[in-house]
């Protein structure tokens, strides 16, 4: 790709991404009192994360079995009230160990 084309693409990419984040953040100055909107905004973080995780996470590794195992381990630790780092690490370990078992010749 020629250099000029890259910079124009970059400007559109980072400019639009920045504005779409910053404008609403800077503009929403008042506390919203409307119960419906408040409730909607309360649920948004959870619904975003849930939709991003499933089913995409099941296909984040080379096989569904190790992904599912890792997520299940993470789920158990989350239910036990463990923190973000712990849950993230045990999920990775769950995948790693499952992959070792699945790929072992025994």
């Amino acid at each position: 790709m020629n250099d000029k084309g890259f910079w124009i693409y970059l400007l559109i990419l980072c400019g639009s991404t920045y504005l779409i984040r910053a404008i609403p953040f800077a503009a929403a100055r008042k506390k919203i009192t409307n119960t419906f909107i408040r409730s909607f905004l309360h649920y948004i973080p959870y619904t975003v994360l849930a939709a991003m995780t499933f089913p995409a996470a099941l296909y984040a590794t080379d096989n569904v079995i190790s992904a599912a195992a890792g997520l299940a381990v993470g789920m158990i630790f989350a239910l036990l009230g463990k923190g973000l780092t712990t849950v993230a690490v045990v999920s990775c370990l769950g995948v790693f160990i499952t992959d070792l078992i699945v790929s072992s010749p025994l």
């Binding site: 959870y46 995780t53 995409a56 996470a57 993230a88 999920s91």
Partner: peptide, 18 residues
């Protein structure tokens, strides 16, 4: 492979307890 689920593990840790 294992690192690929780190982000999702974190998501689970946020959503599940609540």
């Amino acid at each position: 492979n294992a690192l690929n689920v780190a982000i999702y593990g974190m998501f689970i840790a946020i959503v599940v307890p609540d």
